[in-house]
């Protein structure tokens, strides 16, 4: 088998790898205390001591971005985890069993999909209130339908394949067929879906926090910081640019990984 270098996947892994590494370091160490104010140092432009400059309270933006991207990543990963696990369960059941289970759950799915995702998340937040964990819950629920749809198609396509028929004749349980015989063969569509889902989660969290229905202080996510930066864009444009730039890089990196995975899938198929 030829192994060609997959440019998309490589570039995506490098960008995402660097960002993840920095975020991970940021959990334990930041150059400055992200919450330490210094009135003498406000609105400093980027320089060696403050790579991304400082904000209206003289806080080091680089340190804050490190902490903020940690919050954003944690929320995005937790969201995707909820959406992917629940969505895969729903999709596997509907795709495998078909019939009335399929019809019922997929119509419910259609109903959920009909709402814009931010509106749906807003609805959940208005019931459970804002905050880090509630954002995860709200976005996680919003993400279930798209994963369910992707897995349903994959499982339904495998239902009548000969090796699945053989497994059934061997007496394998429904659960065993779905988990052991089908799931590994759906990973090539699931993995790209997860990277796309991750991107959407980063953007959705940023949008929600920007609108003030996301994380609440003292937690700071990239989206929350972007909404702060908006108010001082004329005095400290580097704040918005650096924060937005990190969001863009995160999404870009994961997007490249997703594209690379899909390319592998096309080459295998």
């Amino acid at each position: 088998m030829k192994k060609r270098i997959n440019g998309y996947l490589l570039a995506g892994l490098i960008i995402t790898g660097i960002l993840l590494l920095m975020t991970l370091v940021g959990v334990f160490y930041t150059p400055c205390d992200p919450n330490a104010m210094s009135m003498g140092e406000k609105f400093l432009s980027p320089r060696a001591a403050h790579l991304f400059g400082t904000d209206n309270f003289g806080r080091d933006i680089f340190s804050r971005v490190l902490k903020g991207s940690g919050t954003t990543l944690a929320i995005a990963l937790a969201t995707v985890a909820i959406g992917a696990v629940a969505g895969t369960l729903v999709g596997a059941a509907t795709g495998y069993f078909g019939g009335i289970v399929d019809d019922t759950l997929m119509r419910l799915n259609d109903a959920l999909t009909a709402f814009p995702s931010i509106l749906l998340a807003l609805l959940v937040i208005s019931i459970v209130g804002p905050g880090k964990y509630n954002v995860v819950l709200a976005l996680g629920i919003v993400f279930i339908p798209s994963f369910a749809r992707v897995t349903r198609t994959a499982f339904a396509g495998l239902r009548d394949v000969n090796y699945i028929t053989s497994a059934r004749l061997m007496g394998a349980s429904h659960f065993r067929i779905m988990a052991a015989h089908m799931l590994p063969n759906t990973l090539r569509v699931l993995l790209p879906a997860i990277t796309i889902g991750f991107n959407n989660a980063v953007l959705a969290e940023a949008s929600m926090s920007f609108l003030g229905i996301g994380v609440t202080p003292p937690d700071a996510s990239l989206g929350y910081m972007l909404s702060e930066a908006q108010g001082m864009f004329s005095r400290a444009p580097w704040y918005a640019l650096c924060t937005g730039g990190v969001i863009a890089l995160l999404v870009f990196g994961a997007g490249l990984i997703g594209e690379g995975l899909q390319k592998i899938d096309r080459e295998v198929a």
Binding site: V161, N162, Y163, T165, S166, A167, L169, M170, A172, A180, H181, P184, N185
Partner: peptide, 24 residues
Amino acid sequence: PQIIFQDPYSSLNPAYTVEWTLEE
């Protein structure tokens, strides 16, 4: 009773080794 199929490309699970398939 068991069956063997015509198409030898769809009758074995592509995700697993021969050993896994025979042991399953």
